[in-house]
């Protein structure tokens, strides 16, 4: 477990030193959401109607941004070789790096989401559901993303390919995340989408680190 926290600390240090990373994700999130507003027009009730879907979709796309580099930089400079040989279980290493990714993107999105939602006229009663669904859903995005990022190591085209692989797999999270927010807007119960999002998170937590670790082994072979 000490390997896990050592790697986590280093990952956080590195991403904080290249400050751009976190800011880029939040800026992308805000700009993409603004594009939707420009696309549908300034009518407040139209925006309010689509706010739940737009916030979730743009947050999901923003979470994709930095995934490509989750393992790619370490793969190119030889760090991944060293991490595999460091005596730390590869699964713990994957978990540490994924958690660092979530802390620097998922958590950042979570903090920025209410502001973006405010601009899109999301009704007041839906903010709790927005935060809750993002808190349950974005870790799953990072975990699935880790598998995708491990699979594309060494590929000729990185980012576009990763989006092509991951977006279909992200659909269930988007469906239930947006449904929770919309349910709360309409004053319905949100327990069903929460339960599914939680279930998906547990499933991803058990399967994805293992799948990503074995994909990394194959990538280094």
């Amino acid at each position: 477990m000490s390997g896990f926290s050592t790697i986590l600390r280093r990952e956080l240090t590195l991403s904080l030193r290249s400050q751009g990373d976190v800011m880029t994700v939040i800026a992308f999130f805000a700009i993409a959401a603004a594009l939707f507003a420009f696309g549908v027009g300034p009518e407040l009730n139209v925006q309010s109607r689509i706010a739940s879907g737009v916030v979730w979709t743009t947050a999901l796309l923003a979470a994709l941004l930095s995934l490509e580099r989750l393992f790619a930089l370490d793969y190119e400079d030889g760090t991944l070789d060293q991490l595999m040989l460091s005596g730390t279980e590869p699964i713990a290493m994957v978990l540490a790096k994924t958690l660092a990714h979530w802390l620097t993107t998922g958590l950042a999105l979570l903090i920025a989401a209410p502001v973006v939602a405010l601009a899109l006229q999301l009704p007041t009663q839906a903010y709790g559901a927005l935060m809750m669904s993002l808190a349950l859903g974005t870790p799953t995005l990072s975990l699935l993303g880790a598998v995708g990022a491990a699979l594309i190591l060494g590929a000729k085209r990185g980012g576009v390919l990763l989006s092509l692989l991951l977006l279909p797999l992200y659909i269930p999270i988007l469906i239930f995340g947006a449904a929770a927010v919309e349910g709360a807007t309409l004053g319905l119960s949100t327990s069903a989408p929460y339960a599914v999002l939680g279930g998906l998170l547990v499933a991803a937590l058990t399967l994805c680190p293992w799948a990503a670790a074995s994909a990394l082994r194959h990538a280094l072979e």
């Binding site: 699979l151 594309i152 060494g154 000729k156 390919l161 692989l165 074995s214 994909a215 194959h218 072979e221």
Partner: peptide, 20 residues
């Protein structure tokens, strides 16, 4: 299909696409 075609090293593409 896209993943399988994305690698210089055929075997690498085989393994990645099989996992996918």
């Amino acid at each position: 299909i896209a993943l399988g075609d994305s690698f210089e090293d055929q075997e690498r593409g085989d393994k990645a696409s099989a996992m996918l």
